[in-house]
Structure formats: C-alpha cells, structure tokens
Design a protein around this nucleic acid. Structure first.
Lengths: 152, 152
DNA sequence: AGTGAAAGAATCACTTA
DNA sequence: TAAGTGATTCTTTCACT
C-alpha cells in the first residue's frame, strides 16, 4: 500500500468510470502497472466492489429514519438471530451494534412516514426481546458519500 | 421508468462491473436498447455515478461514530455556513438535518478513539453556536449497503 | 514498470417492428 | 417510440522486455 495505491483508491472511490488510461496518467504510471495495482487492490480486499449509486430522492425514497434499539438479551445466539432477521429487510441500509445507552442503530430508507410505519410494524412483529425503540426522522440529507477519508 | 429500468438499476446498484452484454441478457434485451436505457437513467439523474467501494476495516478505518448536535440558531444563514464547514471534513461521510430532539446527525469514520478525539476538537473549534453534542460509538457494522429498496 | 499486440466491451449509424 | 444488427472505436488484458 504505497502512494500510488492510495491515489488509485482515492480516484476510484469517487469515480470508477474513468478509463484505465486516464487513471494511469493521473497517477503517473502507464496502463499495465496501474492495471496490475487495481487487480491487486481487488484481490487483497481493499476494493470490495464496483457499484452504481442511485438518487434516493429521484426514486421517491427521500426519507431516512434512524432507529435506535435496546434489548435485554446480551448473548451471542440472540444477537445472531436478531441480526439475521434485520439484515434481510431491504429498507435497512445500515445496521450498527453500538456502545452506550442504545444497543443497536439502524438507518432505514423509505418513501414516506406511512411506509416507515409499515416497516416499523414489520420489524417489531418479526423480532423479539426488544425493550425499547426510538425513531428519529431525517428532514434532509446534507451529505452522503461512500468515499472514505484516506490518509494522504 | 418501467420494469426493464428497475431491473437494470437493481443489478447495477449491486454490481456495476457486469458487462453490458450480460446485463442485457439478464433483463432480456439486446445490448443496444439496454445501453440506451442505462444512458437515459444516467441523464435523467436516477444514476448518480459509478464508484468503487472500499473496505473500511482493511484500511484501518473501522470506527464509525454518530454525532448528534443541537443549536440555538435556526435561521438559514447559520445553517448554510454550518453545513459548508461540516461537509468539508472528509471524516464526515453522512450528515443529516433531523426532526425531533437533535437538530443534526453525523456519521464520522475514523481509525480509532484518538482519531475521533482529534476530529471532535477540530469540529467544535471550527463551528459556532452549538449548544449540545453527543457522540455514540459503533462497535460493529453489521450491515452497510448502498443498494436502495427498489419497488419490484 | 513499460511496450505493443490481441481480446473484449462499449458506442454508434442504420434498419426494423 | 422502442428494439435489433453489424461495423467502428475505445478499453482492458496479457505475453514479453
């Protein structure tokens, strides 16, 4: 992981549609060595995949809801079962196990409050052992990026 | 936005490295009409871009911190200035204006608690008018996807 | 790490339903 | 208005230096 690699990752995580030739020029390599580095970064797991990002608002999915959850169960078996259930819901785009007051946090993407309510009912009927839930509604997504802060 | 388009988006938002020929086969079109649809979806703003997703843990960026903020200022000028400042920080990968108790929420990606503390100091010295801040630490990212729940 | 050739994909003009 | 065919152009990939 040298400087070349970091530059390559930095460009590709912002725009993966640049042709290899341009990418190579940008980092001052010729195509083949640059290509070999990209392949290596894929093989070594730095690059997890290439995807297209969609516009949630354009698709009528402009509402993000953050759901914070508490449970009494703190054993691994319960967590595994719970995680499996929650992960299956397509509306759940992010899911974290937290320290502090709340045990879990989700980000749920839906079209509107009515759709969120449907999701909420689905969630509480399909999981057990939750002692507390709170939902916080986002009014506006001011920033959303998949680009990680790479050390330069 | 018909069924073809939805299928195309559904595939590309999970894997944008599939060749057009395969994509076309998967949705039962030949390459050109399929290609035209992809271009149209880009032009019309459904597709915001193509990116490579990196593995945060592999890069030593395994800590997500959720930062909730309150302010006294509820005018547009203050928000704009505040948003501009916060958006500039690369560590901030998500930034929402919220309803309810907290006015804003951030997701911040850092390497460890020490790095978060550096970010925290940077944040509070570069913004003004914040009346309350709380940080919640994620122990584990159980799910993270950029794929939106498209209606089928 | 680089060159140049071969293989493979994307793009386009044009045709057809 | 939308889909298909085939030719052209551009990109990626690879053997070799």
């Amino acid at each position: 992981m040298d400087n070349f690699d970091r530059q390559i990752l930095s460009i590709l995580q912002r725009d993966a549609s640049v042709p290899l030739k341009e990418l190579a020029e940008a980092v001052n390599l010729s195509t083949t060595p640059c290509w070999k580095r990209v392949k290596k970064l894929e093989d070594e797991g730095y690059i997890r995949g290439k995807v297209v990002l969609l516009d949630p608002v354009r698709l009528g999915l402009g509402l993000s809801v953050f759901v914070q959850l508490k449970t009494q169960h703190h054993d691994n078996a319960w967590l595994e079962h719970f995680a499996e259930t929650v992960v299956r819901f397509e509306e759940v785009v992010e899911f974290y196990r937290m320290s502090g007051e709340w045990d879990y946090m989700l980000r749920v993407v839906v079209s509107d409050i009515a759709a969120y309510d449907r999701f909420y009912k689905k969630l509480i009927t399909s999981t057990e052992g939750l002692s507390n839930i709170t939902s916080s509604f986002s009014m506006e997504q001011i920033k959303y990026t998949t680009a990680l802060p790479l050390p330069r």
